[in-house]
């Protein structure tokens, strides 16, 4: 995929949330949610973003979509910088990028029928007649594995899996090219989860979608994604193809993360790489390499210098002094 034009390019993205205090509400410190993330997403691929809670993976997704204002850096969609575009132009891009949330129930109005909720996208972004809109919505429902009759139902009448299907219908309504799935299957039971993923893969093939799949579940990510980015405390730790990350993890954090996942194989317990302690707070950001406080390989210089982002083999990047 080397010389292909990326669909989305993120350069040196930073996102800080200010901590304000005092009567004047001056900014006293910053929560560094994202610290220098640069990334390219290519057409038709599924890029997984994994990490523990608080690693900035969701903030990253939201910032790319424009739901959060970025502090520094740039986001290029099809080669054009989205930052500073006029609202009208931005609307065109928003149509092209959609998001599927963890809990679609929270984003549905409990008093609004599903049909009307799905129709809204068409009202805002197209000039279809009322009849055409209803027809499109009914088609969409069938497309995601629901039934046409569900048009008149309310959100509470659906199960978790069905609600997630509604979330997917909403996301694909306007034929976007990029869909950001933020923990889209995390709240579902395993059997339902597998079926929703199957639906996502079918839709990807049919409409040539590009997915950014944000998840803490490394098992699902392995089976779903072409490339995987591992994040820790807002920084990029390791990036590579699924095979590179899972078969040949290089960064000590990636290794620990992979070894901590409980495998459905009895009798293999107690050979984890143990990480001591908790994730440090992003408002009290560690100096040097952000992982040095928990890293089993940490040396003196890790506390002082931020590790470089370097390529260890083709397409496999890592940020660590020691490996």
């Amino acid at each position: 995929m080397g010389n292909q034009q990326p669909l989305l390019e993120v350069k040196d993205l930073k996102k800080y949330f200010p901590i304000k205090s005092g009567i004047l509400q001056r900014t006293k410190a910053n929560v560094k949610a994202i610290e220098n993330v640069s990334l390219r997403v290519y057409e038709g691929e599924t890029l997984g973003i994994v990490g523990e809670s608080g690693c900035g993976k969701s903030t990253f997704g939201r910032t790319v979509l424009g739901l959060e204002k970025l502090t520094n850096g740039s986001i290029l969609f099809r080669g054009e910088n989205i930052e500073g575009l006029s609202d009208r132009k931005l609307k065109g891009y928003k149509k092209d990028m959609q998001m599927i949330f963890q809990d679609p129930f929270a984003s549905l109005n409990p008093r609004q029928r599903i049909g009307n909720a799905l129709e809204e996208a068409f009202i805002i972004h197209t000039d279809l007649s009322k009849k055409d809109r209803e027809k499109r919505v009914r088609e969409l429902l069938v497309e995601v594995g629901l039934e046409e009759e569900h048009y008149d139902r309310y959100p509470h009448e659906f199960s978790g899996g069905q609600r997630q299907r509604i979330g997917i219908a909403r996301a694909i309504a306007l034929n976007p090219s990029l869909i950001i799935c933020d923990e889209a299957v995390s709240a579902l039971d395993v059997s339902v989860q597998a079926r929703i993923i199957r639906l996502l893969i079918e839709l990807q093939k049919k409409y040539k979608l590009t997915y950014m799949f944000i998840s803490h579940d490394l098992g699902v990510v392995r089976h779903m994604c072409n490339r995987v980015l591992v994040m820790y405390l807002g920084t990029m730790v390791e990036l590579g193809s699924s095979d590179q990350i899972y078969k040949n993890p290089i960064h000590p954090y990636t290794r620990a993360l992979l070894s901590a996942i409980p495998r459905p194989v009895p009798g293999r317990k107690k050979n984890h790489i143990k990480l001591e302690g908790d994730l440090p707070s992003a408002s009290n950001y560690p100096s040097g390499c952000p992982f040095h406080t928990r890293c089993p390989l940490a040396q003196e210089h890790c506390k002082l210098k931020v590790p470089e982002w370097r390529e260890v083999e083709e397409g496999h990047f890592v940020a660590c002094h020691e490996v």
Binding site: S159, V192, A194, G219
Partner: peptide, 27 residues
């Protein structure tokens, strides 16, 4: 239930084919 669990060590891409619990429970 066992087939539906994605195994991180598993290489094959056909984990999804193995899943065959049918019917989604409705609310």
């Amino acid at each position: 239930l066992l087939a539906a669990v994605p195994n991180v060590d598993d290489d094959s891409k056909n984990w999804l084919q193995g899943v065959n619990i049918h019917g989604e429970s409705t609310a």
